[in-house]
Simulated scan of single mutants.
Amino acid sequence: MNLNYEILSIERAEDCRELCNELMAFQKSKTKIKAELFDTMNFETRMIPSLKSAIYNHIVVAKDADKIIGYAYSNISPKEVYSNDFATFFDMFSVARKNVGCLSQFYIKEEYRKYGIGSTLFEMSMSWLHQFEDVEDYFIFVSNGNNDALEFYKRKGFVFSHEILDGFITVLRNKNEES
């Protein structure tokens, strides 16, 4: 393996299309609740709208030589973005500040898991998120059935907040106490 990491400009988000679509298929394969909700989830319906509604976006990719084998997409968004026709992702009154940070998408091809790539992508994403002094609440939304991801984020300091859509998504939260 010849691993390297690169931060992509938003104009290059398209480079993550294939992996984003793989992520949606992976999540559907794991889910035990409302699997049909993933039928319409893909790069066009998940990543593009998120990029457009965010104030700031951050995409970091892991590469083996020149091949992208994993990515993490994070954003800073107005908290109201997380209350829409699909769901209300958290209690708006529990977030004091105007904006929230979110590790929105995170995926590594299966054959590259267990090499520390996830930890590196996670740390790069969190470092970026924590640079915004006006943000104190960080969220990660984990699809049901993805217990490996849930445990990974808990080991990284995120805690269970609540479930939405009858358990379809587990909401994890971390507060920046320094803000």
Rank of each mutant, 00 (worst) to 15 (best):
Y71R: 00
Y71Q: 04
A72M: 10
A72T: 09
Y73R: 00
S74Q: 09
S74D: 10
S74H: 10
N75Q: 10
I76A: 05
I76Y: 04
S77H: 01
S77L: 05
P78S: 14
P78K: 15
P78A: 13
K79A: 00
K79L: 00
V81D: 07
Y82S: 07
S83P: 13
S83L: 13
N84F: 02
N84I: 09
N84E: 10
D85S: 14
D85E: 14
F86N: 13
F86Q: 14
F86A: 15
F86T: 15
T88I: 11
F89D: 07
F89K: 11
F89W: 14
F89M: 11
F89Y: 15
F90H: 04
F90D: 06
F90C: 01
D91I: 12
M92D: 12
M92Y: 03
F93H: 15
S94P: 02
S94I: 08
V95T: 13
V95L: 05
V95F: 05
V95S: 00
A96N: 13
A96W: 13
A96P: 13
A96L: 13
K98A: 02
K98M: 03
K98Q: 15
N99C: 01
N99R: 10
V100D: 06
G101S: 06
G101I: 08
G101A: 08
C102G: 07
C102L: 11
C102W: 03
L103F: 07
L103C: 09
S104N: 11
S104D: 10
S104L: 09
Q105P: 12
Q105V: 08
Q105I: 07
Q105M: 14
Q105E: 15
Q105N: 15
I108S: 02
I108N: 04
I108M: 08
K109A: 10
K109E: 11
K109G: 06
E111P: 00
Y112P: 05
Y112I: 06
R113L: 05
R113H: 04
Y115P: 03
Y115A: 06
Y115C: 05
G116E: 02
I117W: 02
I117H: 01
I117Q: 04
G118Q: 06
S119M: 04
S119R: 05
T120N: 08
T120W: 03
L121I: 04
F122M: 06
F122D: 08
E123I: 04
E123G: 08
M124H: 03
M124N: 08
M124F: 01
S125K: 05
M126R: 07
W128T: 03
L129Y: 01
L129W: 01
L129F: 04
H130D: 04
H130M: 09
H130A: 06
Q131T: 12
Q131E: 12
Q131R: 12
Q131C: 06
F132D: 00
F132A: 00
F132H: 07
